[in-house]
Amino acid sequence: MLINWHKLSPTWKSRWLWGTSLTAGGVLYLKVLAPVFNLSIPCPFHALTGLYCPGCGITRVITSLMDFNLAQAFRFNSLLFLLLPIYVLYSVLRLKGYKKFSDYVMFVMLVLTVSFGILRNIPMFSWLAPVQL
């Protein structure tokens, strides 16, 4: 899909440039800088408490998805795969003007996220914790 640059409004041009730049910077970091210089993004919550937050493993999920390794990405943080379709539902409801229903869906996403964050730190649910490489 080609973008007709001349027909875009200045706002969309700016958004497109920022989005492209941030995506390119992220790919450069994850695929070049991080492996070469052994850089990683530490989780401040995990560093302070020793517990896993709901977002622990997201950087490794993105790296695994860039390598087309869906199974490994799921092992790092399965919550993202659960929240993605729910977020699409939330966005559609919001765009259609169903604010009340979209608020319920947002509440469900919040409960799932908090529950996931708690459960992945309980030994019985240790399989929810991100896999250590």
Rank of each mutant, 00 (worst) to 15 (best):
N4D: 12
W5M: 04
H6M: 08
S9D: 03
S14E: 08
S14W: 05
R15L: 01
L17G: 00
G19H: 10
T20M: 00
T23F: 07
A24I: 11
G26C: 06
V27F: 11
L28Y: 03
L30P: 10
L30V: 13
V32M: 01
P35I: 03
V36T: 11
V36I: 12
F37R: 04
N38S: 13
P42M: 11
P44C: 06
H46I: 08
H46F: 12
H46R: 12
H46Q: 12
L51P: 01
G55T: 08
G55R: 07
G57T: 05
I58C: 05
V61P: 06
V61T: 09
L65P: 07
D67N: 14
D67C: 07
D67T: 04
F68L: 11
L70K: 10
Q72K: 14
F74V: 10
R75A: 10
R75L: 10
F76V: 03
F76P: 09
L79P: 01
L79W: 02
L80H: 08
I86V: 05
Y87C: 13
V92H: 06
K99H: 11
K100H: 03
F101G: 08
D103S: 10
Y104H: 01
L112F: 00
L112H: 06
G117P: 04
I118C: 01
L119E: 03
L119F: 08
L119G: 05
N121F: 00
I122L: 10
F125Q: 12
L128Q: 11
A129Q: 02
P130S: 13
Q132L: 08
L133T: 15
